[in-house]
């Protein structure tokens, strides 16, 4: 059974179609890439899946459950996490706070537990603090743990965003251009990181423009143009297609 299934999604803004009639699906444990020219509707699709934008038509099934009409935080709780194209880390909070904020089911987020039942909350905070240190080590940011996120470099902020995403313990990770703007040395680090994720039980849907990355990490590729799926298949097959190569400079 597929983990995520989108059928006939359409979304227009003021009469202009961002997404026309898009259907995609994939199974748990796989890495699927969405490629295609800018403005093809890929980020809009991510926003729809995350619940930030309602589609005009279409259905979204996640583990068999209908996601339509759910609020973004409900979708996050269901197990879908997001790496934003424009990063969106919490600038005036430290790296540690950024990661800690993302853990699910935090007792202390209920105010009365802050005042009554402090001991349990503090124990949980302690445990999450340990996990945070591990995650920051995993992405190589342990030295920046108490730095305000806005003082990190672009690449470091991206890594922080990934650590934050991992903290959310989401099953399905929506990665929007994870390697964009990252220097080549760090790209290979990122790729290694992403390739380890399916082993941890994660499923990945990634938007990428870097074809080498796509070839390296994905099991399946969707080529999306003008709001629709134009081609689907194994990475090599899709990318070897002369039509696609012509429409999409970059390989």
């Amino acid at each position: 059974m597929s983990l995520l299934e989108l059928n006939n999604i359409a979304k227009s803004f003021d009469g202009l179609f961002a997404v026309r009639d898009l259907s995609i699906g994939f199974e748990a444990g796989t890495t699927t890439a969405l490629i295609g020219p800018n403005g093809a509707g890929k980020t809009t699709l991510f926003n729809i899946i995350s619940g930030l934008l309602p589609p005009d038509t279409g259905t979204i099934l996640f583990k068999g459950e209908n996601l339509l009409g759910k609020k973004p935080w409900e979708i996050a709780e269901a197990g879908i996490g997001r790496l934003f194209q424009d990063i969106r880390i919490f600038g005036q909070m430290t790296a540690e706070e950024n990661v800690m904020s993302a853990f699910p089911d935090q007792e202390g987020e209920l105010v009365w537990k802050t005042l009554f039942g402090r001991r349990r909350m503090q124990r949980q905070e302690q445990m999450l603090s340990e996990k945070t240190k591990d995650l920051l080590e995993f992405v190589g940011l342990e030295s920046k743990i108490h730095e305000p996120a806005m003082e990190l470099s672009y690449g470091q902020q991206k890594l922080l965003a990934i650590a934050r995403l991992l903290a959310s313990d989401a099953e399905l990770l929506l990665l929007d251009e994870p390697t964009a703007g990252v220097n080549p040395a760090m790209i290979s680090e990122l790729i290694d990181l992403i390739k380890k994720l399916p082993d941890q039980g994660k499923t990945i849907l990634v938007i990428e423009h870097n074809m080498n990355v796509v070839l390296d990490i994905s099991d399946w590729v969707y080529f999306v143009d003008d709001g629709q799926v134009v081609s689907f298949g194994l990475p090599n097959d899709v990318l070897d297609d002369p039509e696609i190569r012509r429409a999409y400079v970059g390989v």
Partner: peptide, 30 residues
């Protein structure tokens, strides 16, 4: 009391709303 509230996970969740509400929502904050 306000100090306890502000330094709790609840306070931290509030800060994420202040920093970037969209991202906060995408990370499970109601």
């Amino acid at each position: 009391l306000l100090y306890l509230i502000k330094t709790s996970p609840f306070g931290r969740a509030l800060k994420t709303i202040r920093e970037d509400e969209t991202a906060a929502a995408a990370f499970g904050k109601n």
